[in-house]
Amino acid sequence: MGLDFTVVPSYFGVLLMGSGWTVAITVCAGLLSFFGGIIFAVTALYGHWSLRLPVRGFAFLFMGTPLLLQLFLIYFGLIQIGIDLPAFLAGVIGLGLHFAVYNSELIQASILAVDKGQYEGARTLGLSRGQTLRRIVIPQAIHAVIPPMGNNMIALLKDSALVSVIGVMELTLAAQQAISRTYRPFEFYLAAAFCYYIVNLALEAGLRSLERRIAASR
């Protein structure tokens, strides 16, 4: 059948729209994974035992199984218990939780790596355990863990393609729409790959400048 890239430009709009959704999904899931990561980490380290175990178990489950499987669980599984989530929400929640778990591991390690002297200094001044954690330890831990979490963001962006499988409109699905009209999968999947690559470069550049600003503020 051969290749014919001339069909691609007329679908720029579709691909652009898809890219926009991909960025939106990445941002939403990214935020969820950031804050979720912090919550999971703090709970896993300092929470009541009744909370610690489920969180640890959940983390174990989500790190040991494929993201796609988790997306299926959230999208189809919640329907079983009566929650009918729109695909977009299921996709964002699935991505967000998946990476929240990985971020949580990073954050836990970072919290434990904060020099013990910080604790002692704060407690000696009279701060309570909670205050010490909230004001002194966790801010420092998070500061240190932003670069590795940036790598998780990049992975999240690429993994966002998976939500197309549960029918969420984003770049991959947009490409599939174009393919269903033109029957040219190679050209459009390549175009989609190109778009992902560009967004990836932009994200990497953004993360690098963020890291530089953080390093400078020290």
Partner: peptide, 11 residues
């Protein structure tokens, strides 16, 4: 590394 693996499979 800069593009989704799923897309690579599809291509």
């Amino acid at each position: 590394r800069g593009t989704p693996a799923l897309i690579q499979v599809f291509i």
